[in-house]
Amino acid sequence: MQTVFSTVLPDIPAAAVIWLALLAVAATVVAALIVRPSRFRSELVDRISDAARPSSIDQAERARVQDRERDRYADEVAVAAARAAATAERSRAEWLTAQEEAEVAWQTYQAAEDDVRRLAAAAALPLPRTARTPAEYADRERWLHRAAMDAQWRNEITVRQLSDILGGNGWDPSRHPVEQELLLRRLVRDNLAARHRAATQREQAAWQAAERAAAAAQSLRDEVFAALHPVVEPQAELSIVGFAGPDTTRELPTGTAGADITRELSPVARGRAAVAA
């Protein structure tokens, strides 16, 4: 009857050979790590990077998807840019119109100012004497009302001001026509000055709106160009930091390995010597 030892003993030499072979392989790997850790690490990193990097088919599909998304986004931004450009053109046209209105208001105000100066010089002279009769006062009142209605028809005074003149609110119809005309021209001048200030403010607001619209249109055009011409950034390869452990604190091996490391570091020593010289 065979025992357990009689069954196992014949297989011990084969098992010993297998274990010795595994130990030899492990020792070889450990020796390679000790002698050339950088080469082993670089090869391992390259293999891991190749394995982690997507395949060419995946990259092509991803590129097609990105191109479609980029084209769709560029089309949307292009539509927005066209609308912004139309808004900018309309804003510029409004600004030019406001500028012309401000210029016309300024010229009208200058003409009114000239009339006031002329009438002020005339009023400084002695006024002609007239008979102070009810008929004379009635003629002066009719002249004032007619001059006020003409000024309102020319849109030089407001309806409220015309009502004050016709009603005698702050106006004396019995004064001489030269004085009445001077007062009326001053009122017209003040109204035109206020209109010129309002036109100037509208012109400035229109100019600022046109500038903002032009800047928005330019920004959208730049965004369309950036979407159609993207900047390709280099892809960083996968790296493993400290895979073989800290190299700076390890003692340098002696013998052949030390000579190899010295040969690898020799270009750095020559570079330092050249800089120091």
Rank of each mutant, 00 (worst) to 15 (best):
D172F: 08
E69Q: 13
S91M: 09
P173N: 10
E141C: 01
R117A: 14
E100A: 14
R142P: 01
W153D: 09
I157L: 02
D172P: 02
D139G: 09
L187T: 09
R72C: 03
A138T: 08
V77Y: 04
S163E: 12
R92E: 12
R90G: 09
D164I: 07
W171I: 00
A80S: 09
L192G: 01
R185E: 07
T108R: 05
W106D: 12
D71F: 06
A98Y: 02
A198I: 06
R186F: 00
R70L: 11
A138K: 15
T200R: 14
A131C: 01
A112S: 12
A199T: 02
Q201T: 08
T108H: 05
R189N: 12
T130D: 15
L192H: 13
L187A: 11
V104A: 09
L127I: 00
A111N: 15
V77H: 00
Y109H: 10
D115Q: 11
E181G: 08
N169S: 14
W153L: 10
T158L: 04
D150P: 00
L166V: 12
A205N: 10
E141I: 01
A81M: 09
E94G: 03
A84Q: 01
E181R: 15
R118E: 10
W153I: 07
L166N: 06
W171N: 07
L119A: 14
Q99F: 11
R189F: 10
S174N: 15
T158F: 04
R175G: 09
Q107K: 08
A105K: 04
R72W: 08
A78W: 07
P126T: 04
D164Q: 11
V104E: 14
A86Q: 15
E156P: 12
R129N: 08
Q110K: 15
W95R: 11
E89I: 11
T158V: 02
Q204W: 06
A82R: 05
L125I: 02
Y109D: 13
A111K: 14
R189W: 08
R117E: 14
A147S: 13
R146E: 15
R70Q: 03
L144P: 02
L187M: 11
E76T: 08
V116M: 03
A123C: 08
P134H: 07
A138W: 04
Q161L: 01
S163L: 07
E69I: 01
R118V: 09
H176R: 01
N169E: 13
R195W: 05
V104D: 15
Y109L: 10
D139T: 14
P128C: 03
G170F: 05
A206C: 03
W207E: 08
T130H: 15
A112L: 10
N169C: 05
R189T: 07
V159H: 08
V159K: 11
A148T: 06
D115R: 15
A111D: 14
W106R: 12
A135M: 12
R154Q: 13
A205Y: 00
S91G: 14
R195N: 04
E89L: 10
L127R: 00
R92W: 02
Y73C: 04
Q152D: 01
Q161N: 05
R197A: 14
L184Y: 02
R90M: 11
M149S: 14
